[in-house]
Design a protein around this nucleic acid. Structure first.
Lengths: 336, 336
DNA sequence: AACACCTACGGCAACGATTGCGTATTTATT
DNA sequence: AATAAATACGCAATCGTTGCCGTAGGTGTT
C-alpha cells in the first residue's frame, strides 16, 4: 500500500530523534551544519515530503481555499476559477473546486464538507436554488473567512466582488432599444439571486429611460438557472405565445443565453427576424454561433483574482477584520 | 477565529472522557442508552462534526480522490468530471479537481500535491506536454492507486478507460471521404499523446482503405493542445499554404476543433466551400456553430463513471490488485 | 578552579479521533 | 457466599509534525 516516508523513518534510519530531523530540515540554528547535511541528503534521497495532513491538524489551517460555483462547464465560472488559481497558487494556497449544479442541498453539503475539511476560507457564488443562507451565516459567524463573488447575499457582511450587473443589463437592453425594438422580454435565472435582481433593475431602467412601459408578463424566471433544458424551452414558449409577442429578448445568464439559442434553433425561431437577442455570456465562441448573440461579458478572470486577494487578506490577517468592501467591476458589450 | 467543536469540548462539558463521547457517537454497545442519548443530543446541539483531518491522519486515508485534467473549460473534461462526481459522491468520496493547462510542470506539481495531501487515489488524463511519466510511475510503484482516462500511458500498468479513438477517427475520416473529399489533412494535439497516436492511426487506416496516399505534410501537430490560439492558427495557415491545398480537415481534439473554427472565421475561410471539417468534440452547442462541425463525440460522462468505479475498486481492495483492464468505449458520429 | 554559558541534540506533549486494554461496579450463577 | 460474567466507562497509544524544556559535554571567563 501507499505509505510515504516520515520523519520517524529518517530518524530511525540515521539514528537521530524526530525532533532533530524536523529541525534540520527546517534549518534551525540549533543543528550543526554537518548533521544538517547528512539529514538533508538522506531526505532528498528518499524524496521526503512533510505530511500536510499532520501539519493541518497541528496548525489548524490547511493552506487551501474552497470554491463553490454552480458548474465548471460555464465559461464565466471556468474563467473565474482560472483567476482564482492564478492568485492562490502564487501565494502557496491550493484550490478545491466544488459544483452545486444549482442545487441548494448540494451547496449545503459541499460547504459543510469544505469547512470541516479545514479550508482556510471560502469563495462562494450561490446556487440558483439558494435563498436561505443560514448554512453560510453559521460558518461566517464562527469566524470562517469567506468572500462572495457574482451571486452574493446581503445577509452576510464580508467582502464581495460583482460585475456592474445593473449597468450591463441597462446597456444590453438599451442596445436593443437603439436597434428599434420596443417589446423587449427578459429571461432570467431564479428571482432571489442577486444577479437576477440587479439585472432586472438595469432592464427596467433602460425601459423607463425610453418611456417603454414595463410588463410583468415579459419577465420569465428559470428557478434552476437553466440546468434543465425544458425549463428554458417552456419560458421561451410562454413568451412566444403571448398575444403581444416580444420582438426582442434580454437573457440574464451565461448558460441561459446558450440554452436560449438552442431553444430558438429547435423551435425554428429565427433571429433577428423573429426575435432579437442579447445576453450575459462569457463564452469565447459566441462569434461562431448562429443565430449570433450580442453579449455582455463580465471580467470573470479578474473577478476571480480580486475575490481571492480579498479572501487571502482576511485569512492572513492577524486581527479580526471588520472593514469590508464590495468591489464592482464594469462589464463590456460585444455587439454582433 | 474559526474553531470547530471537538470531542474534548463535549467531554469536558458533560463530564465524560473523550473515549466515551467517541463511542457514544459511533454507537458502540458498551455505552448505556441513557448516556448515548445525553451525548448525542448535546453533539447535535453544538453541531459537532468529526474532524476529517484528524481522521485522515489516523486512518491514513482521506476518502477523497484527485482528478488531473487539462482544463475544466473543455466540454469533454467537464462532462467526465460530472461522471466522476456522480459515482464518487454516492460512495462517500470527495473529488479534488486540478488543471494542468496542458503544462508538464503544472502536472507534476498538482500530482505531487494531491499525493502528499493523502488522496486515496488518482484519476489522470495526461497533459499535452507530458511525455515523461516518471512522476506518476514513482507514485504508482509506491502503491498509490491510479486510473488513467482519455490520455493514457502504456508505461504504467493499471486500469485505463479510453474511447475507441482509432475507430472514431476512422469514421470521421471516412465520413469526409464519402462526401467526396480526397485531400484530407489532420490537425492534432502533441505527437506523443495516446489519443493523438490512436486518432492518427484511424485517420491513416481510413485513407488506406480508400487508396488515398498518406502525406506527412497533411498532418499538423499542436504541442500545447491548442492552449495558444496562435499555435492553431499557424498550423491551419501552413496547411492552407501547401501547394496541394487540402480540401478537408480532420481535427483530433475538443478545444482544437473549436479553435480551428475560430481560425477559419478570422482568416475568412469558408466551410465547406473552402475546406470541410470534422472533429472530436463534446460541446453541446455545436449545433449552433457556423461554420458547422460534424463531430465525433466521446461518452465522457460514462468514461468518468467507469474510471471512478475502477479506481474505487482498487482503493477499497483488501489485497494488492494485479489484474488490470483497459476499457474501450465507442464514440458516436454526429453529422451536421 | 569554579562558574556561567554555549552547542547540539533528545524527550515529551499537543493537535483530534479511534481503539485495545484495564477496571470498578453491578448482576448473575452455582 | 464465593465466583464468574457482564456493564459502563477511563487510560493511553497512535497517526506525523512542531515547540517547549531539559541536558550532557564542551568552551570561555575571572
Amino acid at each position: 500500500m501507499f505509505v510515504p516516508s516520515t520523519l520517524k523513518d529518517i530518524a530511525s534510519a540515521l539514528g537521530y530523534s524526530t525532533s532533530t530531523i524536523s529541525r534540520a530540515l527546517r534549518d534551525t540554528y540549533e543543528i550543526s551544519p554537518e548533521t544538517k547535511k547528512i539529514i538533508r541528503e538522506y531526505a532528498q534521497k528518499i524524496n521526503y515530503r512533510p505530511n500536510p495532513i499532520a501539519l493541518s491538524l497541528k496548525e489548524r489551517r490547511s493552506k487551501s481555499i474552497g470554491v463553490v460555483v454552480a458548474e465548471v462547464a460555464n465559461h464565466y465560472f471556468s474563467q473565474a476559477i482560472n483567476g482564482i488559481e492564478s492568485i492562490a497558487y502564487d501565494r502557496g494556497y491550493h484550490v478545491i473546486i466544488t459544483q452545486t449544479h444549482e442545487s441548494y442541498e448540494r451547496e449545503k453539503i459541499n460547504i459543510q464538507h469544505l469547512a470541516s475539511r479545514s479550508v482556510d476560507g471560502l469563495l462562494v457564488s450561490l446556487s440558483a436554488e439558494t435563498s436561505d443562507t443560514a448554512h453560510l451565516q453559521d460558518l461566517h459567524q464562527k469566524g470562517l473567512p469567506m468572500v462572495f463573488f457574482d451571486r452574493i447575499t446581503e445577509d452576510i457582511v464580508t467582502h464581495k466582488v460583482i460585475a456592474n450587473n445593473e449597468k450591463g443589463a441597462f446597456e444590453a437592453t438599451e442596445h436593443l432599444i437603439h436597434q428599434g425594438y420596443r417589446r423587449i422580454a427578459h429571461l432570467t435565472s431564479s428571482a432571489h439571486l442577486s444577479i437576477s435582481i440587479e439585472r432586472l433593475d438595469g432592464y427596467k431602467k433602460a425601459l423607463a429611460k425610453h418611456d417603454i412601459p414595463f410588463e410583468q408578463d415579459y419577465v420569465k424566471y428559470c428557478p434552476h438557472g437553466g440546468m434543465f433544458y425544458q425549463e428554458t424551452e417552456n419560458a421561451v414558449k410562454e413568451l412566444m405565445n403571448l398575444k403581444e409577442k416580444p420582438d426582442a429578448i434580454f437573457v440574464a445568464g451565461d448558460r441561459l443565453s446558450i440554452d436560449c439559442l438552442m431553444v430558438f434553433k429547435n423551435l425554428n425561431i429565427k433571429t433577428p427576424q423573429d426575435i432579437a437577442i442579447t445576453g450575459f455570456s462569457n463564452s469565447d465562441v459566441l462569434d461562431l454561433m448562429n443565430p449570433s448573440l450580442t453579449s455582455i461579458r463580465q471580467p470573470a478572470f479578474e473577478m476571480g483574482q480580486i475575490a481571492t486577494q480579498m479572501l487571502l487578506k482576511v485569512i492572513e490577517s492577524k486581527y479580526p477584520v471588520y472593514d469590508f468592501e464590495k468591489k464592482v467591476l464594469d462589464t463590456s458589450l460585444y455587439v454582433r
